[in-house]
C-alpha cells in the first residue's frame, strides 16, 4: 500500500509507472525509468497528450535528464535505504541549479524521520509505504524541528529573527 502526499496532504496519484517492455500509453501521465527515457527519449518528449515523469534510481545522476527538464513534469528520486542520502542532493540540484518547478517525488524507503530533510531539500511529494510514517503525516507531524542553521530551499522558511546570522532560518 502506497500513500501519496503532495505538499503535506494525501493525494490521488494520476501517474502511471511504466517499466521495461510495456508500450507507453499516448494519453496518460507516465513515470518512466531512466533506461526507458533514454531508449525512447524523442518519442517521450514529443507526445501530444499526457505528462512525462522520470524515475531516477540512486545510482542515476541528474545530468542524464538535465537538458530535457523543461519538458519533464515530474522527477521521482529513489531512497533505496534509510542510510542512502544521495537523493537529498539531487532534489537540491533540481530546484537550485536547474530551476525545476515540477513535482519532485520521494520513493522507496520514505520514513518520517527524514521527511523534513526531504522537504527542505526540495521534495514536494512523498510516496510512502511505511504505515507509522503515513499515520504521522496524517497528523501533520513530521518529527522535525522548527529552527534551522542553514538556508535550504527558499520559500518555506524565513530568516531567523536572531540577529547577526544570515544563515539561520525559522519555519513559517
Amino acid at each position: 500500500m502506497t500513500t501519496l502526499f503532495i505538499d503535506g496532504a494525501v493525494a490521488e496519484d494520476p501517474w502511471v509507472s511504466i517499466d521495461g517492455e510495456q508500450p507507453v500509453p499516448e494519453a496518460e501521465d507516465v513515470i518512466v525509468s531512466l533506461a526507458l527515457f533514454e531508449a525512447q527519449r524523442h518519442a517521450l518528449l514529443t507526445r501530444n497528450e499526457g505528462r512525462l515523469g522520470v524515475y531516477l534510481e540512486a545510482d542515476d545522476q541528474i545530468d542524464a535528464i538535465a537538458d530535457d527538464l523543461g519538458k519533464i513534469d515530474l522527477v521521482a528520486l529513489d531512497f533505496p535505504s534509510f542510510a542512502d542520502g544521495r537523493a537529498f542532493s539531487k532534489a537540491r540540484l533540481l530546484r537550485d541549479r536547474h530551476g525545476f518547478a515540477g513535482e519532485i517525488r520521494a520513493t522507496g524507503d520514505v520514513r518520517i524521520d527524514q521527511v523534513q530533510h526531504m522537504r527542505r531539500s526540495g521534495f514536494n511529494a512523498l510516496a510512502v509505504h511505511h504505515q507509522p510514517t503515513v499515520d504521522s503525516l496524517m497528523e501533520i507531524k513530521d518529527a522535525g524541528l522548527n529552527l534551522f542553521y542553514q538556508p535550504a530551499i527558499e520559500g518555506a522558511e524565513a530568516r531567523s529573527s536572531s540577529g547577526g546570522r544570515s544563515w539561520a532560518r525559522r519555519a513559517l
Partner: peptide
Amino acid sequence: QWSTIHPEFLF
C-alpha cells in the same frame, strides 16, 4: 552551525 542538521548532508 551550518553543518548542524543540514538536511542534505545527514546521510
